[in-house]
Design a protein around this nucleic acid. Structure first.
Lengths: 192, 192
DNA sequence: CTCGCTTGTCTAGCGGTGCTAGAATCGAAT
DNA sequence: ATTCGATTCTAGCACCGCTAGACAAGCGAG
C-alpha cells in the first residue's frame, strides 16, 4: 500500500502548491492576473490538472480564503494575548486586523470581497472561518457592555473594521488619518 | 445649427439609455451578466457604439456609480429632513443607507465594490460623490462630539455602514438582527 | 437635384478567459 | 515484457473586452 500512500502524499503536496502559488500570484499581481493558464504554468502542469483538485477557479479562491482566515486568526490571537487589559486588547485587535488587510490585500479579497463559494454564518461554515470569528469574539466580547449580546457586538465591530479596510484600500478614505479613525472607533464602541 | 443640436440631443439620449440599461441589467442579473455584447443588444446597437460613448466597460460602471451616488444623496437627505432631532436624523440616515444598499445592490457595487475608474477623496473627485459624502456629513457632523473632527467622524460612521452593508449582502452576517446592529451602532457612535 | 465627403455604424476578428472531451502517455501489477 | 487502469496533455469550445477597416447614411456645395 506504500505506492498508494506516496501518490496521495504527492497529490496533497501538489494541492498545497496550487493554493500557495495562487496566493502568491494574487498578492503580487492581483487576482485578475491569476488565470488558470498562468497558474498552471507556474506549477508546471497543464490546466486540466487544476480541475482534478478543484471544481474551478472559485474553489481555488475559497482555499486561499480558508488559509487566510487561519492566518488572520493567529495574528489576532498573538496580538491580543500580548496586550494587557480589555481596552488594550481591543485596540491591538483593531490595528492587527487592519494591518493584516493592508499587508495581504489579495488574501483579504479572497476572504471577503470575492466569491469563494464558501458558506458563512451557517452551520456548514468551514471551521477556519468560524474560528476567525471566534478569535475576534474572544477579545470583543469583553467590551460589549451590559445587556448587549457579545456576538452581535462582535459583528458590528467587525463590520466597522471591514468597512475601514475596504474603503481605505479602494482609495475612498485618505490613509493619513487611519490611526485616528481606529482610536475613535475603539473609544466609542468599546465599553471599558 | 439645428441639425447639429438634434444630433447632440440624440447622442446624450443614447448615452443615458446605455447607462440606464446597464444599471437595469446589472440589477436584474448581476454585473457579470452585463457584457458589452448583451448591453449592445439591449440598446439595439452594435458593440462599437458603446465605445464611442465610453472608453470601456469600466467607464460605464463609473457612470452608473455617479447616478447611484446622486440617488443615494437624495434618499439620505429626504430621510434626514423628515426626522426631528440629531439622534433621529442619524438613525434615519443609517436605515436609509442600508436600505439603499439592499435595494440597489448592483448600483451599490458600482459605487464601492467595483472599479469604475473614479477618483475618490481627491480634488478631482466627481461632484456627485463629493455631494453624497456631504449629505452624510450634514447629519453626522451634528453628533461627532466635542473635539472630534466632523469629517473624520463621518468617515468612521460611513465605514461602519459600508461594512454592515457589504457583509450582510455577502451572507457574512445573518440578516435577522440587522435592526439591532443599527441601534447599537447609533447608540455607541453618535454623541447625542 | 446631384454629387462628393464627412460622419456614423456595422461586420469581422484579435487575443484573452474559464473549462472540458478525448487522445496520449505513464507506471504498477502480472 | 506486457497489459491495462490511472493520470496528464493537446486541442478546442463558447464567451469575454475591445478595435480595425469596410460600409452606409446624410450633410453642404455646386
Amino acid at each position: 500500500m506504500s505506492v498508494q500512500e506516496r501518490k496521495e502524499r504527492e497529490r496533497t503536496d501538489r494541492e498545497r502548491l496550487i493554493v500557495a502559488t495562487a496566493r502568491e500570484l494574487a498578492e503580487q499581481q492581483g487576482w485578475d492576473a491569476v488565470t488558470t493558464r498562468r497558474l498552471a504554468e507556474h506549477i508546471e502542469y497543464s490546466q486540466p490538472v487544476l480541475y482534478s483538485h478543484f471544481r474551478g477557479k472559485r474553489e481555488i479562491i475559497g482555499a486561499v480564503a480558508l488559509e487566510g482566515a487561519a492566518d488572520m486568526a493567529a495574528a489576532v490571537r498573538a496580538a491580543t494575548s500580548a496586550a494587557h487589559g480589555p481596552r488594550a486588547r481591543v485596540t491591538a485587535l483593531a490595528r492587527t486586523y487592519l494591518d493584516f488587510a493592508a499587508r495581504n490585500p489579495a488574501v483579504y479579497d479572497a476572504m471577503f470581497r470575492l466569491d469563494g463559494g464558501l458558506a458563512f454564518a451557517q452551520e456548514d461554515t468551514p471551521e477556519p472561518l468560524k474560528d476567525a470569528f471566534a478569535a475576534l469574539l474572544e477579545s470583543l466580547g469583553e467590551v460589549a457592555g451590559d445587556g448587549v449580546h457579545p456576538g452581535l457586538f462582535t459583528e458590528v465591530f467587525w463590520a466597522a473594521l471591514h468597512g475601514l479596510a475596504t474603503l481605505t484600500r479602494a482609495g475612498r478614505l485618505p490613509p493619513e488619518y487611519a490611526e485616528q479613525r481606529v482610536e475613535l472607533l475603539v473609544d466609542r464602541l468599546a465599553v471599558v
